[in-house]
């Protein structure tokens, strides 16, 4: 069952900016759905439309099968990209307020539980203005989930978090999923999307360019990437026949092969130049796919077209 359906949704700001263009999307119940896309591509606008904060110009959005999200607003938790908290309120007081505003009753127990889970118990009586950015972000997350909504929408939940806190938040998200919550989040961290999401959706210039499981997306591109480590590094990988592009990551390089390129021939050429320490023929990473779609070269191609 799909808990969220977008059917040919378009949203335009002014006459010039089409933020979301004829977008259709279905989010299955209990899944973790990752929204990726460059800045300004329409992710936040899409999330705001799902939340009924913005209204689409055309198209229909159904949440829990109903066309109006207003009635079921309390069943959706929403954490915007920009964190907004009353800085002069105390943590526990604020969470109780947000919980009760969301229709929650007797939220005190849930507040205490979440504070403990996210290691914030000692900060419950402190004012928000005394908390660090990471702590504030965790408080914002608790405010989003404290009433145990059926859908949780998180706009950039991991941005600005240190690895420890990111890990804590990741565990919390996965725990929600285990309990049957549908989680949608946007992110610029491709590793997080690859590791956490059941489905990945990419929007670029308002249009859907990717939608599906990671495997399905990668299958579209096939094994066209060589991940290699050599004695001489990137300097030995110049002007290889059949290689479109070399991405140098320092210790490792990635080669994008042109269609019909023979990987064995490429390997033989490289071995004639330097010693090869590692050679993998892999499918492109999500990061790689993202860059191919939204990177400067893609923009040039699109511009030329």
């Amino acid at each position: 069952m799909d808990v969220i359906e977008l059917d040919r949704v378009t949203k335009q700001f002014g006459k010039a900016v089409v933020a979301v263009d004829n977008l259709s999307l279905s989010v299955p119940k209990g899944s973790v759905y990752g929204f990726i896309g460059p800045n300004g591509s329409g992710k936040t606008t899409t999330l705001r439309m799902i939340m009924n904060i913005l209204y689409p110009d055309t198209g229909v959005i159904r949440v829990f099968g109903a066309p109006q999200v207003g009635a079921c607003m309390d069943r959706i938790g929403y954490m915007p990209e920009e964190r907004g908290l009353y800085k002069r309120m105390k943590v526990r007081e604020l969470l109780r307020f947000y919980g009760e505003l969301k229709g929650g009753r007797r939220v005190n127990q849930a507040v205490d539980e979440w504070l403990r889970k996210l290691d914030l118990s000692d900060w419950g009586h402190k004012k928000l203005e005394t908390l660090s950015k990471g702590m504030s972000q965790k408080v914002q997350f608790i405010a989003t989930v404290v009433t145990r909504p059926d859908i949780v929408i998180l706009d950039e939940p991991f941005s600005g978090l240190d690895p420890v806190n990111a890990e804590v938040l990741k565990d919390a998200v996965l725990e929600l999923q285990d309990q049957g919550t549908t989680v949608i989040f946007s992110t610029h961290d491709m590793n997080v999307a690859e590791r956490m999401c059941d489905f990945i959706f990419m929007i670029h210039r308002g249009k859907k360019v990717l939608d599906g499981t990671l495997n399905a997306i990668q299958d579209q591109y096939g094994c066209d990437t060589i991940r290699i480590r050599t004695e001489q590094g990137a300097s030995a990988l110049q002007n290889l026949e059949g290689v479109d592009k070399v991405n140098d990551y320092g210790q490792v390089q990635e080669l994008h092969m042109a269609p019909a390129c023979d990987a064995q021939a490429v390997l033989a050429t490289i071995m004639s130049r330097t010693a090869v320490r590692r050679f993998d023929l892999v499918r492109p990473s999500l990061h790689d796919i993202f860059v191919r779609i939204a990177g400067p070269e893609a923009r040039e191609v699109n511009h030329d077209a």
Binding site: I53, G70, M79, L85, Y86, Y98, L101, A143
Partner: peptide, 17 residues
Amino acid sequence: EEKTQRIAEVLLGSIKP
């Protein structure tokens, strides 16, 4: 203030404008 501090958007996730 609530608009510029982004509190408004958080609240709009729970309450109609």
